[in-house]
Design a protein around this nucleic acid. Structure first.
Lengths: 298, 298
DNA sequence: CCAGGTTTGTCAAAGGTTTGTCAAGGGTCT
DNA sequence: AGACCCTTGACAAACCTTTGACAAACCTGG
């Protein structure tokens, strides 16, 4: 239980705004002492932090408040990341299967315009994180299988991957706005090149207001070390998309933990299990992964 | 739900145009607050982004709007390709030196927002091709030197490169549509990874209306062979950004010429000289290079 | 190639709404 | 006593609204 001053410093919202938000939108309704003093709990702080993030990133306070109240935005309490926008709405969308099919067909025909059109329609289905988790990543997996099967040539696979990369880049760029605080460095270890998942995660994190530095593919371990030490850095997030990337990833992670004990070292991707003791394994949902990184204090 | 201002920044469409497009074409019909303020959702943003892309690439807004409304956003060819902006004096623009300096400083501080701001201002100086030729590529060269000198850490260099990649990706995406006819495949040979120049060229070519298939970095020679044979292809353009890429490039080029004698095999980049007999060496200006590829019949 | 009409981006005016912040007047806590 | 908290009311800046207009760019017929 915190006083209003303490709540202000923890949530980053000025005291006056805290009262105004309560009066005008009812984002939180803190308990009161007998004498009427406000008492905020951890859930309230979390909701307020979420609201500040949304407002900082351009939402109107009124819209942010209703989003939080309706559970649209993640106002999850504490380190238990939950209550995320459910993927089901997109998964069960009758269009997704057809859309994946359209994407594969376009890739197989190396028809760039058709690939872009499929992505257009996909991203129109819902919010970025949901679309990525529920449609894009599964579709890319299918694309990989189609390539392995020979149904899609490597050229079509490349053309499609780069089209996806462009879309993600656009989303990343669009998520700019105010990103403050210590940096979150996102990238792949030495030798790793499949960066779409990393970029999608970086975008989700940036959309949450984190100051993401995306350093992309194939960053040597010593560069990682210097990266997190040279500037105030909150976390380093490594993507481990293939089995071959595990060795470099675990070495990089171990070195980071040793050389910069204060920071959070996290890893995501299909092969990110058991890299090194102390490394946080991120869930495969980019929305959940981004929430986890935001909430976890190293 | 976003306010009109936020929707504008996310879709890249000016606020005034947002209202005009709604009034005149009804591309989107945002929900309203009780007091009449517009509220845009993610689907609206996606539709607006698509519309902007089409308009940027030469469609008339009216045509783009009906195309989007009917769901076939990227099908019909637009009006005639407009005359391309002529190279003007970006070089002599007093701002470029300062802008390069700003970019280097932002890279050295690993300040993503500052990097993006420098790129913003750079691309505001003139037409895409001119800015790339006269400012961006020289600035990237300087960035490379700064990295070699140790003035900029590899992390700053990566962060800046990826920011540039995002900008180029946006430009490539914006140049969509009106691309019919035999494909032009653009990419890098096996082992080559410095793709910014290739992507800039691919964008310039697409802006001229060529059906560019961008296949990116590190494409093995046999994939190149299959790429140009599987579909009607007019040209293959290889980027050779470093000395190390020469061997793979010349082998790939020679194989392409042998296996597909009908097509144009061209190469650009600092180390693209004398790759193999029959390979067209592209000038370093992406505008000139794109024009050359368009005009040359293999 | 030129005149006349249409399309389209952008702007301004006039006026309402939202929101952060502050101040006044007064109570509570240590 | 001094630091902290309360409510209420207020205000300016930022933001939004519509309507109307205009110049540049584009198209079409002559």
């Amino acid at each position: 239980m915190y006083t209003i001053k303490e709540a202000s410093s923890r949530s980053g919202v000025p005291v006056a705004s805290l009262r105004a938000w309560e009066r005008r939108y009812g984002v939180v309704t803190p308990r009161r002492t007998e004498s009427g003093y406000r008492l905020y709990d951890d859930a309230a702080i979390a909701a307020l932090s979420t609201m500040r993030r949304l407002v900082d990133s351009g939402w109107s306070p009124a819209a942010a408040a209703t989003a939080i109240a309706s559970g649209q935005a993640t106002s999850e309490p504490g380190p238990t990341s939950a209550a995320l926008p459910q993927a089901s709405s997109v998964t069960t969308h009758p269009e997704t299967a057809a859309l994946t099919e359209a994407l594969l067909e376009a890739a197989s025909a190396v028809d760039v315009a058709a690939i872009e059109s499929a992505l257009d329609r996909g991203f129109a289905l819902g919010p970025f994180e949901t679309v990525v988790d529920a449609w894009l990543m599964p579709a890319l997996r299918e694309l990989g299988e189609a390539w392995a099967d020979g149904r899609v040539d490597v050229v079509g696979e490349h053309a499609a991957s780069y089209a996806v990369m462009r879309r993600l880049s656009q989303a990343f760029a669009a998520a700019a706005s105010l990103t403050r605080g210590p940096r979150v460095v996102v990238g792949l270890p030495s030798g790793a090149h499949h960066e779409l998942g990393a970029l999608a995660f970086a975008t989700a994190a940036r959309r949450r207001g984190l100051a993401v530095v995306y350093v992309g593919a194939d960053l040597p371990a010593d560069s990682w070390r210097r990266a997190v030490r040279a500037f105030p850095t909150r976390a380093a997030v490594l993507a481990v998309p293939t089995d071959d990337d595990r060795t470099a990833a675990s070495r990089t992670a171990a070195e980071l933990l040793e050389s910069s004990p204060g920071i959070l070292v996290a890893a995501g991707g299909d092969y990110a299990d058991d890299l090194a003791p102390g490394v946080v394994r991120l869930p495969s949902s980019i929305a959940q992964a981004a929430a986890l990184v935001e909430e976890t204090q190293a």
